[in-house]
Structures are given as structure tokens and as C-alpha cells.
Write a protein that binds this DNA or RNA. Sequence first.
DNA 1: GCCAACGTTGGC
DNA 2: GCCAACGTTGGC
Length: 154
Amino acid sequence: MQYWLFKTEPDAFSIDDLAARPNQTEPWDGVRNYQARNFLRDDIKLGDQVFMYHSSCKRVGIVGMAEVVKEGYVDGTQFDPEAKYYDPKARTDNPRWYRVDIKFKQQYDQLLSLAEIKAMPEIQELALVKKGARLSVMPVPEQEAQALLKKLEG
DNA sequence: GCCAACGTTGGC
DNA sequence: GCCAACGTTGGC
């Protein structure tokens, strides 16, 4: 079992949306970045745990946990001209983009802010705290995941 | 809203 | 294959 961090813009989709349907699987689609795509397609496994992170908003940080309930499969929205993330260059016989399904696990009472995460001495490798930090799907090293969980649940 | 950092595109 | 131009991300 591995840990991941998914970014989401709460204006588009928030932890509240996820928590509102606790027994439903949520397709994590619309990811249009190759590095993130590779994680979704190749590396994210059933049962993996996901830190949910709110980005591009007033209070940025980790807000909850989700679990992977379906491994990488083709993101159908790339073929849909009506879809927001339609990709005219994607072909059905050679799909570009993949998604996984997740399910709500937990919402935390208070968020663990980006500033707090950056201040944690344990957090060194997490892509979120590296310069640039634009990746929307990233692995969380085991040790760092434990440190985050301790802080979130502590 | 600003702007730095980054990924992608496309001309050559 | 290089690299400038461009669009996007995302914190502040």
C-alpha cells in the first residue's frame, strides 16, 4: 500500500463534495499532465491511500483522506467534445489520459495548511514543497505520510 | 490580480 | 533537436 496526494480546486470539486457521497466511487478524471498520467496509469494501486489537498483557494492544505477503489483506466472525457478536458488529439485506439476511482475515507476538522507542511522537518521529498510544485498527482513517501497523519490526527 | 515557475507547442 | 513563445498553475 502506498500513499499519494491529489490536488483539487475546491471551487470545482472539494472534500465536501467527496464527503457528501461517502459510499460512491468518484472518477478522478481531467488530469492532463504526463507525469501525473503515468502515476494514474501505472503506479496507483487498489487500496492506496490518498491525501486530499485543496489548491488555488483561500486556505490551501490537506483536508481529508480517500482510498483508491479502481486502478488506472482510460479517461473517457478526453474523447468528449463537450467535456471541459476534451483533447482533440487523443484517439480511442491510442488514449492519452487515464484516471482512477477513489472513495471518501475521512474529512479532517481543521486543514493542515501548506505553510505548516512546509515547516515540518520530516517533509523533505514531497513534491508539494519542492520549487515549482505544479504536479497535481504525486507520491507521498511512507515516512512523510506517517508524519502528516500524525499531525492530522494528533 | 500579480507574477514566477513550469510544461507544451511549433517553427526552423 | 533546439528554443522562443505561449498558456497554465498556483501561492500570495
